[in-house]
Design a protein around this nucleic acid. Sequence first.
DNA 1: CGAGGGTTTGAAGTGCATCAAATAGTGTGG
DNA 2: CCACACTATTTGATGCACTTCAAACCCTCG
Lengths: 259, 259
Amino acid sequence: MSDIKDIIKQTLLLGRLDDECIRVFADKAQRIKTNKGQVLFIHEDEAESFFIVVKGWVKLFRETLDGTQAVVDILTTGHVFGETSIFEDGLYPYSAEVAEKGEIVSIPISLLKSEIEQNPKLSMAMLTSMARYRKQQDQELEHRTIQNASQRIGCFLLRLADQGASGPVVIHLPYDKTLVASRLGMQPETFSRALGKLKQATGIYVKGATIEMDSLDQLVNYSCAACSSEFPCKDIAANTCSKDSGSTDSGTAKKCLNA
Amino acid sequence: MSDIKDIIKQTLLLGRLDDECIRVFADKAQRIKTNKGQVLFIHEDEAESFFIVVKGWVKLFRETLDGTQAVVDILTTGHVFGETSIFEDGLYPYSAEVAEKGEIVSIPISLLKSEIEQNPKLSMAMLTSMARYRKQQDQELEHRTIQNASQRIGCFLLRLADQGASGPVVIHLPYDKTLVASRLGMQPETFSRALGKLKQATGIYVKGATIEMDSLDQLVNYSCAACSSEFPCKDIAANTCSKDSGSTDSGTAKKCLNA
DNA sequence: CGAGGGTTTGAAGTGCATCAAATAGTGTGG
DNA sequence: CCACACTATTTGATGCACTTCAAACCCTCG
């Protein structure tokens, strides 16, 4: 069982703080086992905590009165959520539900709020993490506008893949096709059919949640034509703390002790 | 002719800084007249400046190689753009073009970058402004997922209106219908037809760019049903510095000297 | 083995896009 | 002040993409 501190160090938001500061968060943190379907909080609830995913998947979404829902994001290990409530009058800007059982860490939002006002390093980290999120959302919006269902699937697959690879590639869908569909803003049926079309158009091989292909080229041709970014678009694994993190090369917050 | 300092004070990003700090920005700022169609910068250009709209309208967008474009946002007086390039490896994350002639102020991005690392008040302001933008984008994505064309138009109108009004209301479209259409992610033809449908469904009266109705109720009924937010959703006039600004009630950055 | 959820397939409908053309509106020069 | 040129907007006709509803299939797990 990894230490809470190690978990915190995996996040983009808190990972680069000094050990001392991390301990402050770790001390108030709480580990929670999660089960599929469990609702963690509801859109516009008063926010008491923010969370880190340790294991499993968490779905963020909003829904209308009649139950129609729009998936905001689907997160896993190292991702942080609920933290932006401090800029939303203390209310959660979406609902959160466990999509696949696992574990999360909960930390009082009040702590984040007070720390962020005192610790410039933290507010810079929050900026970096919001900037990354923003970039991701901008791209998502663009894709919804410009790409059709099959292209969005192709793009999604490319973002799962190692974009450096030049030979054959195997990709595993990280969660239910139904969930992928909602993540991409389409119906499960549409997903199924669109994947079929993608298969035909690019010659990828699909077996359950596993997808194989001779190279990424076909996919790139098919999907990236309808995108404003050039191919190796190495998608920002939103919110986790990885080697290159697109921070302001300020030198301010550079040490990241991650796995 | 208003002073550059006054213009800066209208922005959410820089409006709350102390006079001294504002002067630092004002000193390096440059006023530029803009004409319709003028391209201010291109997606992924090296960012040298960020901008404030003084007058007129500026369209932010991205486009694919074949010219298909996705409008990111359309900005006017007091709005800031290009500033997030500091978190994007120094590249602009979208293209910017003048949609209606006016004036902008340009400020070296390097100045923002250095100031933001030194001035916690500024980094908090940047956080606030990014949070607000994020909220807006989240909502946009939700609307694209859940609302149909007519509902999106209705919602757009509601956000233009004084949501407190209880009696008759008159709304003016701020720019071309074609531009509104693109802002809402639809074709001009679709916009025209969808507006017709909206007219029928809600009894609003449309004459050119002017829209009148007995009360907002009809519109609220029609559009807000397909939205996760409750009605008086007083949309954050993104990026401008208004009375209530959804900042962390930190007390840190509270004085706003706006018009 | 059977239940239940995930996934696929079929058939039909809806909404938006597209192409083409008419109409309204705006600004210009005569 | 009018006619022309040009642009914005509307309207019509048609097609495609995605959704919806219904049912079958498949797979996993108790």
